[in-house]
Amino acid sequence: MVERRGALRSALIIAGIVVAAALRAAAGAPDTAASMPAGVAFALALLVVAFAAGWRPAAPRAAALALGVGGGGALVAAWLLAHGAAGVQLAPLNADLALWTPLVALVAVAEEVAMRGALFDALRSWCGDGGALFTTTVLFAVLHVPLYGIGSLPLDLAAGLLLGGLRIVSRGTLAPAIAHVIADLAGGWLL
């Protein structure tokens, strides 16, 4: 009975995440990745799904914070090591970047709350940490394909696995959320 409820809850959360992604695609067409209103709608939809599923924020812990910063550093360092850090510069601050930064942080946090928060908890109660890690990693990568193309799949699988590892070690959502925010912001702040 408990297993069946866990499966149903997991399926519903996955459905909610998929509907939120479809909503983003439909509302943001023709250029979904660039539509800020669609990004906000996506983030809010994910947060509502997570809240409805019973996810609640826990008190932040310094260890999780440090782990998140380390994870974000690893995500950025992997790129820097492969392509050389010598030519990398900080982007000049402008209105676009000032608006983009909080929005990207909101979307990243919402993705973590829904996937490695509510969904991870539901899956873990049903099929353990291994099943939760596998499902959230694959879902995370597949959801980004419509936005960034099939070429993004290996990168998002590896990034999703790292974020899942952070979730398991820290036993919370704060560490993967911080790492995710750092990696995404690097996409705009580093040239």
Binding site: M36, W100, V107, E111, L147, D156, A186, L190
Partner: peptide, 12 residues
């Protein structure tokens, strides 16, 4: 030359 993008809102 691939940009360091994992995800994030795109500015277009």
């Amino acid at each position: 030359g691939s940009p360091p993008i994992y995800d994030g809102q795109c500015i277009a």
